[in-house]
Simulated assay, not measured.
Amino acid sequence: MKSKSQSQCTQRTILLQSPLGQIQVCGCKNGVHTVQMLMDVPPAERSDHASLSCVVMVNDGQNEINPELQHCVEWLQAYFSEPRTVGRLPVPAFHHPILHEDTFTSRVLQTLVREVKCGETVSYKQLAEMAGSPRAVRAVGGAMRRNPIPLLIPCHRVISSSGQSGPYMGGKGNHLKQWLLTHEKSQVED
């Protein structure tokens, strides 16, 4: 169900081509509402895998992208071409209601954006501690599942205490999580 502030938004949808396949970004003039990775082909099997660019493919039948969505496109382009540079860029504004509520999920997602930098990982337990609730490890997992803005809110950087990468996108995107972690690590170490 959409919140009152979200239902009053004029949302735009754009599709981006990335090394992970198509990425759908929805947002309004106030910020990004959702980011979805539309899994088509695993990154290792893509013919354009060497290209680390992010190209706008479709723009909702409109010619104009609002400034917040344009900022998101530029952030994603930087992420795929040189992930180490995104730490110097402001994260696009978020306008999904889950991120503006006073809830544990919101606190965890905001902590993740603020504290876990590109090339770093954190365990579910560590993130629970960072969010002020050391015993809420399972709830952190729930917050990761409800993340409406993956990549920008880097839930792929949250791993199990054993060092295993853990599930991503309900287990359907585990290969994407591994690709993202490898992409960040290799770029940060260069």
Score class of each variant (00 low, 15 high):
140 V>L: 09
83 P>W: 05
74 E>L: 11
28 C>M: 10
117 K>W: 12
138 R>V: 08
77 Q>H: 14
175 H>K: 14
170 G>W: 13
176 L>M: 08
156 H>I: 00
10 T>V: 04
105 T>L: 08
149 I>C: 03
21 G>E: 05
186 S>N: 14
57 M>Y: 04
109 L>I: 05
53 S>A: 05
88 R>Q: 11
55 V>W: 08
6 Q>E: 11
33 H>F: 05
165 S>P: 12
98 I>M: 14
184 E>M: 01
21 G>N: 04
183 H>W: 09
32 V>K: 01
134 P>T: 11
91 V>K: 14
133 S>L: 08
23 I>T: 11
48 D>I: 15
184 E>G: 01
39 M>T: 12
75 W>K: 04
151 L>T: 09
167 P>A: 09
23 I>W: 00
119 G>K: 13
141 G>N: 08
105 T>K: 05
2 K>R: 12
2 K>L: 11
109 L>S: 02
165 S>N: 09
164 Q>M: 08
166 G>Q: 04
83 P>N: 10
186 S>I: 05
9 C>T: 00
126 Q>F: 05
2 K>I: 02
168 Y>D: 04
39 M>K: 09
164 Q>F: 13
3 S>H: 07
168 Y>A: 10
36 Q>V: 15
123 S>V: 08
163 G>H: 14
80 F>R: 00
168 Y>C: 09
30 N>P: 01
90 P>F: 08
107 R>D: 12
140 V>M: 06
108 V>A: 15
175 H>L: 13
139 A>F: 10
62 Q>W: 06
99 L>M: 15
57 M>A: 05
72 C>H: 00
32 V>Q: 00
7 S>D: 04
65 I>K: 07
126 Q>E: 08
159 I>T: 14
86 V>C: 07
164 Q>R: 11
132 G>N: 10
127 L>P: 02
190 D>Y: 07
41 V>T: 15
96 H>S: 03
115 E>K: 11
133 S>P: 00
13 T>Y: 06
100 H>M: 09
16 L>Q: 00
42 P>L: 05
38 L>W: 11
170 G>E: 07
155 C>P: 03
133 S>R: 05
92 P>H: 03
70 Q>P: 06
56 V>I: 12
113 V>M: 13
4 K>V: 11
129 E>W: 08
49 H>K: 13
71 H>P: 04
120 E>M: 09
167 P>G: 03
58 V>D: 15
54 C>E: 03
28 C>T: 06
105 T>V: 09
155 C>Q: 08
5 S>A: 13
132 G>T: 06
159 I>W: 12
159 I>V: 15
99 L>A: 03
47 S>L: 13
95 H>T: 12
94 F>Y: 13
133 S>F: 06
